[in-house]
Nucleic acid binder design. Structure first.
Lengths: 187, 187
DNA sequence: GTCTATAAATGGATAGAC
DNA sequence: GTCTATCCATTTATAGAC
């Protein structure tokens, strides 16, 4: 329906599968069946489109994570909610997290888009930190040192898992996610 | 000296800083002070150059890892050798691991180059697996489950740490690497 | 090995009609 | 909002002289 939304959806997919620098207005044109000029009407420049994708992606991910916390107070169920989001990306095959994609092309992505994806990374890590703190407080999760450091590790590992999984198979990626969980199990 | 080697060195840097799709013969031309045509003389196509970069990178990394194992039998010192390689990439600022870069652009990188970088990833994980097995056997390292799964987790986390560190600062990346080590400490 | 010159394709972007 | 037409820069690549 909404053209703008359609464009954003496909652009997001292209960024997740090909990356920001490797996707073009032509790709969008092919997929949507309208000309490049029409797409420029909705998003005058690629940088503006990139920013819009990032903002939409930020909203989607943060809202889903918020939903996870509203759905349960249990730290393990909350962590599973996060892992579930990663798994759903892995399942699509060919895709990785858009935030991870932008981080890996950091030097060639427009600044406003970068900033938004950095914001998202910080948000996710803060969210995980929160889960880890309540898990430790409840005595159901165990890990060394600062919860923020552990949360950053989990975030980095999850990004790496998606990238690795696309190349070597979803099974490997799931194995990594499973290992993250095992390492948090209280003894 | 050797032009071919000079080209490979700069191409490797460009792939680590900008990615495969975002670097061009023009970039190399600018940096080397010779024309694009001259570079095509050494590497007729971008795909061949990409493959050569991957082969050279594979040789460099595997040889350095081999050196680490020859230098010490201690699992912790060996792990520090791997972490040291990651740290030296992080220190350069702007760079990430070339294997990680190729993994994140997987769908737009020539197949031969992809294959070589996948080989490298497998090699590194096998190398880490080995360290973990001897560490566990000696009772100085502790982790849940399969050493191969833990090694894949460490590899994924290290790749993620470099990408995250370039965007959010080297301190954060070092923190993640430190956390990996803490999580392996025998209790 | 390096150059000039050039090709052919693609990329991001704009003007103006409908 | 979408189109045709067009622009200009960039990209990968080749031919042929020095």
């Amino acid at each position: 329906m909404d053209r703008k939304e359609q464009i954003l959806e496909i652009a997001t997919e292209l960024i997740q599968t090909r990356g920001y620098s490797a996707f073009s207005y032509q790709d969008l044109s092919d997929r949507l069946g309208i000309t490049k000029a029409s797409i420029h009407h909705h998003f005058p420049s690629k940088a503006e489109l990139g920013l819009a994708v990032a903002e939409r992606y930020f909203a989607d991910v943060t809202s889903a994570l918020g939903e996870v916390k509203r759905a349960s107070d249990d730290p393990w169920e909350q962590l599973d909610g996060y892992v579930g989001q990663i798994l759903s990306i892995i399942k699509t095959r060919d895709r990785i997290c858009a935030a991870g994609a932008v981080h890996s092309e950091f030097n060639v992505v427009p600044e406003s888009m970068r900033d938004e994806m950095c914001r998202l990374a910080k948000h996710i890590i803060a969210w995980i930190t929160d889960v880890l703190e309540s898990g430790r407080r409840a005595g159901v999760m165990d890990f060394p040192g600062d919860p923020k450091a552990e949360a950053a590790l989990i975030f980095a590992a999850a990004q790496g898992a998606m990238q690795f999984g696309r190349a070597h198979g979803a099974v490997k990626a799931r194995q990594i996610l499973q290992q993250i969980k095992e390492s948090l199990r209280a003894k």
